[in-house]
Design a protein around this nucleic acid. Structure first.
Lengths: 201, 201
DNA sequence: ATTTTAAATGAACAGTTGTTCAATAATTAG
DNA sequence: CTAATTATTGAACAACTGTTCATTTAAAAT
């Protein structure tokens, strides 16, 4: 059971997270100040520290939440498909669509990151590891069904796979102002490239 | 003809660039202060501003120089090969080897970048554009020789190609402390993945 | 209604850093 | 050798920001 007091606390917490998301997305990590965030959430700066240890903590809480929800919906949608290829398709699509929806926030990755936080910590976070493991499992399944050569190590291929997707996304983010194509439309190309390469015939 | 005065000026400039390279590599952009850099170059902080407009300018001058030298040696080595596949091989190898040699400096990319500078500006820099164009030309050649399907747009494929390499490098940088494999050894895998995908048989 | 407990505030603190510029030192010219 | 020019210096400036904490305000308990 959750007390009224606790629920209110959660609400305030999410007020701050919401403001943080907006400002991190708008200005990047360094240029979004605690003052800004507190102001947007309609609190004083000190209040932020009643909910988060420090600025880093706030940022990672936000990130963890985002990734958790991405993994959750992806798993859910992938589970509905039967054959492996379809699963991979949905996996890619879901990933791209999530980034498209949250593009402002994820823009931080191309704009600025601070020393030791960056991806190293993200990948090692609980949800990060879960995601990596889930992806490897999916590809292992694809290997079993003969879709992917058994020469490759599943974990390694999983890395490359997510890397490609990540890269496509980053590139897309960077050129968003120039082109105006849909990110999800790229999912076919990605899978083709990954599964069949670009070889002729 | 270059006067003594000018040569000395160039020398001081490169003193500062050298120190900047070391400290940016060691601490990242934000945490490497002008004071640090000046001190290591054995100058006072004010002197830096006699050679560079500001910290940003210093950073980009460094980056431009690095990229210029990379493009130059790559072009030189690639030109020596005759068949296209070999050219691609050398291209990949050269890229990887350059990053391996300058890994400390390029570590900045995974550790921290500031707002509007990041890759957007790099890619649009003169050398960045030249590199992109050169890569596209190489892939266009590969298309002509039937190595790559003509369905693809050369510029687009060039992007994906460099993206994959970049990603592999970033991943490698991130895990350098964990694994200890050689970056250049990955070139074969990269080309295989790119040209043939990971399809079975 | 009064006391006790908890939450929120925001001014003040402490530290940092890019940048400037008057003063100083070194170089060059006459 | 002296004067003029140029380069170098580094203390001082100004602006910023994460974080704290004494004080105020609100809520809960009695």
């Amino acid at each position: 059971m959750i007390s009224r007091k606790e629920r209110d606390k959660q609400l305030r917490r999410s007020d701050i997270l919401k403001a943080a998301e907006h400002l991190f997305a708008l200005k990047g990590y360094h240029k979004a100040t605690i003052r800004d965030i507190a102001k947007e959430a309609q609190y004083a700066s000190g209040t932020v520290y009643l909910h988060f240890k420090d600025k880093n903590d706030l940022y990672f809480a936000l990130l963890e939440e985002k990734m958790k929800s991405m993994l959750f919906t992806t798993k859910e949608r992938v589970a509905q498909a039967n054959d492996v290829k379809k699963k991979l398709e949905i996996f890619v699509q879901e990933g791209l669509s999530f980034f498209e929806k949250n593009q402002d926030f994820f823009r931080i990755f191309i704009s600025e990151e601070d020393g030791y936080f960056s991806e190293r910590k993200i990948l090692k976070s609980s949800t990060g590891l879960q995601t990596q493991e889930y992806t490897a499992g999916l590809l292992r399944e694809a290997q079993k069904k003969g879709l992917i050569s058994k020469d490759f190590d599943a974990e390694q291929i999983a890395e490359v796979f997510t890397s490609i997707i990540k890269t496509i996304i980053l590139n897309w983010l960077q050129k968003k102002d120039v082109r105006n194509n849909n990110l999800i439309d790229l999912s076919g190309t990605i899978l083709r490239l990954f599964l069949k390469g670009v070889a002729d015939k």
